[in-house]
Design a protein around this nucleic acid. Structure first.
Lengths: 352, 352
DNA sequence: CTGTTAGCGCGTTCAT
DNA sequence: ATGAACGCGCTAACAG
């Protein structure tokens, strides 16, 4: 434990440990290599010496040899979206637990992917995980063509050989529709985005399809430029204006649902859930806040993260296996915004 | 641009480029080293060959020599808190812009810091940034004693030689107090946490101090176990019960303020801002949502990130300089929750 | 300005 | 099981 001035100037190397332990440098190396073959006696000696000197394996040097840096790039954008933030956190946790080091790269729009690509490739990342509303095509193409394992989260097919992990967006849309049906809603609307990401498109399509199968009229569609709180707010405004008779609303993300709920409460006569029932999708933390208490379809990001890491490891073991697609289950969380009205026929209509 | 099967099997090395360009390996190296001395002629040749072969510098090998990996660890926790998520995103962005690679390490409680330390040290990180409500002491001590540059965000002093960046928590507390004073509030309360983090403690102390100077009575203090939405909700409940006459409230974080606002709206007769004015701190995205519209003290996380990177670079240049403390300004954002009531004396008291 | 040489810290044959 | 030698891809110091 007496190491004060050396560390500052020179790193403790395997050779130092070897000398201290009275063995060869290879012995030290082997001691710290999982699939080794060292006698217990020397292992002890090495570990002792290593501890005394405060030795740590230099992973950078190690990577140089076995070509596995165990660095994994997380390319993410829109981290203001709580769902995304949660995804990133769980992803980082899962990676660390499995012995990887997540290196976080904010996807800086479509303008300059070269920088990000450089960061990834120059550091010999073992893999790349992409989660962003608008996946940076350039980065994906380059990585794939260079054979860097890549996993896309909630994205459409980009190239033949890319693994993907999807939340069950189809089921999400269907569950939303049938739940509103059970709650006796008959005039439905969907709130989405002008430029919906892949998963949003699927949710919307599935919702529409389910509506048809249930015998609904085609649900009305409202949207705004982005896909955040403000967008939900604006879309709800448009909806109230164009479709006053609406009694069931599916917001394709909770983030937008919160905006919609606030618009309805502050600027409309519609009471939720009495006059209008609302269901969201994702189950972000805010959805369970007392102020919203939003019924929603939960997307388990923890499970998602596990699946992503699993996909990555599978790809390491079988680099040439065909692209695999993993699906993560969803389930409905019923809260106040779709609560059954005591008497569905004519509740004391407390319009202002 | 014709590189298809080689890449998969073997990395393109500087030697390959040298051969192709008809120069020495060093020439290649120099071309890609900022402080170089290469003739324009050879530089051209090298760049051309490099482009043709798809060569990229191997930063891992480079780090092995100049001992600067440019990897920077971000140790973060509580990313469910939007303020923290925003911090992390801006931090990652700033780091990338300055040529660093952020490696994100979720601080996993106090239980097992060894794993995180290992990740940091074995990868020869150039620096470590810590932002967490409860800073993992073990990690900090170890890094400092090993001479790894470290920057603490919004933390108290841990060790003599650690740089820190603080938002101006003192000013935050003072501004909150004087704003409530200007708005004619006289019965003040503070909502904090049972175990407040460093910056929260400072905000509370400064608020109290300002109250004394303004001639207020000592503000009442309410708190709950954690420091999130739920905590704000519970603390507000306690406040309404114990102190019905409260007319001015300072929530030490927006995150908690949102919980308080929801409690007040849903479970109390107090109307904000008519009966009770509320001010938060941080200016998280949700604070500006229509449903909250919270007056708050803005903490500029973008500027914070810049300062942190600056601190890191300063430390690289002068490893033995005394610890430096950087302060980031704050400013008040006035929204609806402290809006002046038209007639302050006796508004139509619309108690239910 | 250029090429040659010597390591950076480590994993892995190949003999013993 | 263990030690000696070699190479991973690169930069820095040295000669020319």
């Amino acid at each position: 434990m007496k190491r004060l001035e050396e560390e500052i100037t020179r790193q403790v190397t395997a050779l130092d440990v070897a000398k201290q332990a009275g063995v060869s440098r290879s012995a030290v190396s082997r001691t710290f290599t999982p699939g080794a073959s060292v006698s217990d006696a020397t292992r002890k000696k090495v570990l002792k010496a290593a501890d005394e000197l405060g030795y740590r394996v230099n992973q950078l040097a190690r990577s140089l040899i076995n070509k596995r840096s165990d660095l994994v790039g997380i390319v993410a954008a829109n981290m203001d979206n709580p769902f995304r933030a949660q995804q990133v956190e769980h992803m980082a946790r899962a990676l660390v637990e499995h012995g990887f080091r997540p290196i976080l790269l904010p996807a800086e729009g479509e303008e300059n992917p070269a920088r990000v690509i450089g960061m990834l490739l120059e550091y010999n990342v073992s893999g790349v995980i992409v989660t962003s509303d608008t996946p940076p095509q350039g980065i994906c193409q380059e990585c794939v063509s260079l054979g860097v394992p890549m996993v896309l989260i909630n994205k459409g097919e980009i190239d033949a050989n890319v693994d993907r992990v999807l939340l069950d967006n189809e089921a999400s849309g269907r569950m939303a529709a049938s739940h509103l049906y059970e709650r006796s809603c008959r005039n439905l609307a969907v709130i989405g985005s002008d430029k919906p990401s892949f998963s949003l498109q699927v949710r919307i399509r599935a919702f529409r399809q389910a509506c048809r199968e249930l015998g609904f009229a085609e649900p009305a569609y409202f949207s705004a430029p982005k896909q955040d709180y403000q967008a939900g707010f604006l879309a709800a405004q448009a909806m109230i204006k164009d479709m006053p008779q609406v009694d069931g609303l599916f917001c394709v993300t909770d983030y937008m649902a919160l905006g919609s709920l606030d618009y309805l409460r502050l600027h409309s006569d519609k009471k939720v859930p009495d006059d209008l029932k609302v269901i969201g999708c994702d189950d972000i933390a805010q959805a369970s806040w007392a102020g919203y208490n939003l019924t929603t379809i939960r997307q388990d990001t923890k499970c998602l993260a596990q699946q992503v890491v699993a996909a990555l490891e599978a790809r390491f073991n079988h680099p040439n296996a065909p692209a695999h697609l993993r699906m993560v289950e969803v389930n409905m969380i019923e809260r106040a915004t779709t609560k059954e009205t005591k008497d569905e026929s004519d509740q004391d209509a407390k319009a202002v």
